[in-house]
Design a protein around this nucleic acid. Structure first.
Length: 649
RNA sequence: GCUGAUGUGGCGCAGCCGGUAGCGCAACUGAUUCGUAAUCAGUAGGUCAGGGGUUCAAAUCCCCUCAUCAGCUCCA
């Protein structure tokens, strides 16, 4: 007998070898039917795992993230089963659960059309209705490979073969006629997968390698109840309404033009205004913190990039001016994809001593990157962008404090913008198995990654590790954020570079009179203005905080005879430094209010006879509605407070 | 770059199996001067992303290019 501690600390006795599924059943059929997976001593296990010692057991339902995971993973198997029934020649690759749902990759002659997906969905529903039990079994690796070979599943054979020789058994899950190589965990049957939607079908490379076969990836989502699916789909629709690429265009923040080219957006007055406000804020803040502004050229001869290593490691990503196949490469110029090697020249301008360090250079820097044509996305991925760039040269002793101050600056920016709660952290490391991509030796990387890891731990930053995500010259702390589609991008990056100073001969004379190479921190404080603008548009659905709003107050006259007073108010507000617009059209007040609301202007003044008589303005807030009449000075004081403290409302 | 989808007046859409473009909103003009999310009437605007081809005839069929979207790969 073993003692199993259940929810709420209740300890029950069970026979040795009991499974979580059996325990769930003993508690009640309701629980048994809804349980998806088990957490045994904080480890997620399949419900069929025999328990052979005292332990703590949590029975995970769909409400638990790991429960959801198992649920979706089983749904992906149902998807594969349906595909195999309808398209017996399809070869199965992998089909995991993801953050929101699941996908399965298939090798098929022709990618699935929307009609195909409908058919597949219908077949999935049939499978679910049949309520097939899901069984688990294990085979030794060589037998597993033999079985999968017989099943004519080459991708599965490849996966199983990697495990042969390890001496471990390989697990399979089987439901009806469908068997899949899989580590699990899975549901006990397909029955609970009541509501399914196949959301998308796209291409995806086998093992994420662009040189390998391209497969057909079907994305889906599933829930135990139809109402949950409806709710989810509605939520996604709402999220898409915030898509910066849609409302950013509608609200006049930016546009694109076919004959200018991909990834080259036109920032319209509103978008340009927000970026200007952000930029002034960033530059002023950085200056106060001891950063020295530089302005360096947008292009340089190839020689510069050869020293920095960009020519070898980043050439494909650069816009090169001239014929790259020309004999004399010295005459080639390239637009800068990064600011680093330019700003280093400022450092190199004088002989440096340890007394000069840390030396902090910042720049509002426009960069050009020849991104592959399929990569562009609204303002988030573009070919020309402007970044709050900075490079900081310091001694090893200063590294931790300086790194910390860079993180603090980024945090301050994120908090001010209201994005702090929305980001996650990634410690981006090199991939030792992909040496081509990096400079430096194993020892150098181990050392600098060790240092960075220690600093991050001291800062108590909750990061995940990204292997192969480092820059070619050093590891990064990437501050990640998701767009409305759930796609993650880097908003801010702070990097430690122990290698490039040497390449450029950047030195300082230390206390002991010896010349040494400084550490360089590459960092951005607010990221790229275009991308940050995009995420702010999505965050606020276009309704910017007052301090960033392109137009802060819209003045609406009730009737034309009030316009003189209105323009007088405008003048006074502008004298206070506020951004004001007048809607002088001969429309009804309701119409003009509606327009201003749709434009998401923070404050509207409704001005009519009553206001002129009383010498007031009637204030309306876009969210709070009618705030009543007040003296202009009263409003200005209130608005200034809101602006100065950068309130978000 | 790859897979798939899309590209019709400023925006959102119609235009089925080919016979030379419609609607709503916006814009403009006129009337209305009306206090917190849409006043009424009228006018103008597109050759259908661009180029080539098939055809007596193409927005509608075919090819190429460009751009947009989702995903992959890549990346701030």
């Amino acid at each position: 007998m073993i003692n199993v501690e259940l929810k709420g600390g209740v300890v029950k006795e069970f026979e040795n070898g009991v499974t979580p599924a059996e325990i769930a059943k003993s508690i009640g059929m309701g629980l048994y039917k809804s349980v998806c997976a088990a957490r045994v001593d904080n480890e997620v296990k399949d419900l069929r795992t025999p328990l052979d010692r005292d332990c703590k057991l949590e029975l995970l339902t769909f409400d638990d993230p790991d429960g959801k995971h198992a649920f979706w993973h089983s749904a992906s198997h149902v998807l594969a089963q349906a595909v195999k029934r309808l398209y017996p020649n399809a070869k199965c690759a992998i089909g995991p659960a993801i953050e929101n749902g699941f996908y399965y990759d298939f090798d098929v002659e022709k990618p699935f059309s929307n009609e195909d997906l409908q058919k597949i969905k219908a077949e999935m529903k049939k499978i679910v209705k049949s309520g097939l039990e899901i069984e688990r079994f294990e085979l030794p690796a060589d037998e597993a490979v033999a079985k999968l070979t017989e099943m004519n599943e080459p991708y599965k054979v490849e996966l199983a073969s990697e495990h042969s020789g390890k001496g471990e058994n390989i697990s399979f899950y089987k439901q009806g006629e469908f068997t899949d190589l899989c580590a699990g965990p899975h549901l006990m049957s397909v029955a609970p997968i009541k509501a399914v939607e196949l959301t998308n079908c796209t291409g995806a490379y086998w093992r994420g390698d662009a040189d390998k076969a391209q497969l057909c990836r079907v994305y889906g989502i599933a829930f135990p109840k139809a109402s949950m699916l409806e709710e989810y789909l509605k939520m996604m629709e709402e999220a898409r309404k915030r898509d910066h690429n849609k409302i950013g265009r509608e609200l006049g923040f930016f546009t694109t033009v076919d004959y200018i080219g991909q990834g080259l957006p036109i920032l319209l007055p509103k978008g340009a205004r927000v970026i200007q406000l952000l930029q002034r804020f960033v530059e002023d803040t950085e200056q106060k913190l001891g950063w020295l502004l530089t302005k360096t050229p947008f292009m340089a001869k190839s020689d510069l990039y050869k020293i920095s290593g960009h020519w070898d490691h980043y050439k494909d990503g650069m816009f090169i001016l001239g014929d790259p196949d020309a004999e004399d490469e010295g005459e080639l110029y390239a637009l800068r994809p990064m600011t680093c090697p330019f700003q280093y020249q400022a450092y190199l301008n004088e002989q440096r001593s340890y007394r000069d360090l840390p030396l902090r250079y910042n720049e509002t820097s426009t960069l050009f990157r020849n991104e592959a044509s399929g990569e562009m996305h609204g303002l988030i991925r573009v070919r020309q962008f402007t970044i709050s760039e900075g490079h900081l040269m310091c001694t090893p002793e200063q590294l931790e404090d300086e790194f910390k101050s860079c993180v603090e600056l980024a945090t301050y920016m994120l908090k001010t913008l209201g994005l702090y709660e929305d980001v996650s952290y990634r410690f981006s490391q090199w991939d030792p198995n992909d040496r081509e991509k990096y400079i430096g030796t194993q020892e150098e990387w181990d050392e600098v990654q060790g240092m960075m890891g220690k600093i991050l731990d001291h800062l108590e930053i909750p990061y995940k590790i990204g292997i192969g995500e480092a820059a070619f010259y050093g590891p990064k702390l990437d501050i990640q954020i998701k767009n409305v589609f759930g796609k993650e991008d880097t908003l801010i990056t702070i990097q430690i570079d122990p290698m490039i100073a040497e390449k450029f001969g950047m030195e300082y004379v230390d206390r002991d009179g010896v010349k040494k190479h400084p550490f360089i921190i590459h960092r951005t404080s607010i990221g790229c203005y275009e991308r940050t603008l995009a995420l702010l548009i999505e965050k606020y659905a276009g309704a910017f905080p007052l301090w960033l709003a392109p137009t802060q107050v819209k003045l609406l006259a009730v009737a034309d005879r009030h316009l003189d007073y209105v323009y007088d108010v405008k003048k006074k507000l502008e004298a206070e430094g506020m951004r004001v617009e007048v809607d002088g059209r001969s429309e009804k007040i309701g119409y003009k209010i509606r327009q201003a609301q749709l434009e998401k202007v923070p404050y509207m003044f409704i001005i009519g006879d009553k206001d002129i008589e009383a010498g007031t303005v009637s204030v309306r807030h876009r969210k709070e509605g009618d705030l009543g009449a007040m003296k202009l000075e009263e409003f200005v004081a209130m608005a200034k407070e809101e602006i100065d403290t950068k309130q978000i409302k």
